[in-house]
Design a protein around this nucleic acid. Structure first.
Lengths: 110, 110
DNA sequence: TGACATAATCGTTATAAAGCGATAGAGGGA
DNA sequence: TCCCTCTATCGCTTTATAACGATTATGTCA
């Protein structure tokens, strides 16, 4: 694929990247599971999500790469938790992006 | 691809679908262009985005399918505009989803 | 009607993403 | 040490996405 990411503004690329991390229901559910459980062992996520262990692991990798979660090794298991600061930042970016757009487009009707 | 969308909650599927619409920098830029221009003729978008006309048309289709924009035929041209209500709804959904998660995860640190 | 402009669609190619089973590596306990 | 558990990675297949050029369809205007 000829992804012409270099032709777009940096902030648009970053926002698009984070939106992509949220663009799959399994990843959204994984985030919810991690948020709800007091502990966040990988195995529990696999139990709660209707996907194979290897697939869940891939999704976790995507979320980790996007900076939305972090995993720490806990003996034989891996404990995953959210990064509240990153989520808050993402929230603000989305809000800002959409908010600006809504303000500007208030007049435009076609 | 075996997209197991049916295995996930409806609201997660919908949010993921809309996030996917925002997951490409070209589409984000197109939204900005439409928001900024007072008129929103398709050709102007093509001029402002570093992609071929057919590619832009595809992106517009994705945005239209996601319900974020609408296009009305204006003679030989097509006038695109944002759907402020849809954008506002999306904004609130993101905000709610991320907000709930941040609240719940305040305690969880691993 | 004929020529031109605009935008959507088609056909094709290349890359990314999603999914799974199997394997590998790292710890912990018997 | 040996086995078991847990999770990441590999290899593979299937489907989706992105991109473009070429074509088609629809209007406008001379």
């Amino acid at each position: 694929m000829r992804t012409k990411a270099d032709h777009f503004a940096t902030d648009l690329n970053e926002l698009a990247t984070q939106a992509k991390a949220l663009s799959h229901p399994a990843r959204l559910q994984i985030l919810q599971v991690i948020a709800q459980k007091e502990s966040c062992i990988c195995g529990e996520i696999v139990d709660d999500v209707p996907l194979a262990q290897s697939t869940v692991s891939q999704h976790l990798k995507v979320l980790k790469k996007a900076g939305l979660i972090q995993g720490t090794i806990d003996g034989p298991s891996v404990c995953y938790c959210l990064d509240p600061a990153a989520l808050q930042l993402l929230r603000e970016r989305f809000d800002g992006f959409l908010g600006d757009m809504i303000d500007e487009s208030a007049a435009t009707t076609c």
